[in-house]
């Protein structure tokens, strides 16, 4: 059983590959996407994805736009923003728009891992609550 199922979104292919190797080694299940569109497509296909690691600066659909789209389509999925120095403002903007957290790139792998497990835990707890609520709703419907 992996810690979490994570979608890694970054236009820098070498970075995605390196990250994937290291996270897989730490029992994280990884899906990779190289731009915003691809990320949304993967999310739609695979409902098991719990956490998205999202680069802020991408050509085409950038991180903020992708985040907005993820929040709209997949409200339960948690997002961790990755940002360079020059884009701290956009990370803050991302937090305001509902990102779980942000990390400076390049980041410490253990810090990232901690954030990922945290986010996954939050997500799972929330899902459990939803399930519980559903169950209660269904049971309370009985006369």
């Amino acid at each position: 059983m992996s810690i979490a199922k994570v979608l890694l979104v970054d236009d820098e292919k070498a970075f995605v590959e390196a990250m994937t190797r290291r996270l897989v080694k730490r029992d994280v299940a990884i899906e990779a996407a190289y731009d915003g569109q691809e990320a949304l497509a993967k999310l739609a296909r695979d409902s098991g994805i719990e956490v998205v690691i999202l680069d802020v600066k991408m050509p085409g659909m950038d991180g903020i736009e992708t985040l907005a789209e993820i929040r709209r389509q997949f409200p339960l999925v948690e997002t961790i923003m990755l940002t360079g120095h020059a884009t701290v403002e956009s990370a803050i903007e991302g937090m305001k728009r509902g990102a779980f957290d942000y990390l400076m790139k390049p980041c410490d792998i253990d810090a990232l891992l901690a954030k990922v497990s945290e986010a996954a835990a939050v997500k799972r707890r929330r899902e459990e609550k939803i399930v519980a609520a559903r169950v209660q709703e269904i049971t309370s419907r009985r006369p």
Binding site: E12, A14, F15, G84, H85, A86, T87, K105, P106, C107
Partner: peptide, 11 residues
Amino acid sequence: VAHEINNPVAV
């Protein structure tokens, strides 16, 4: 430039 150099450094 700092931002641009950030990507290869991260890799």
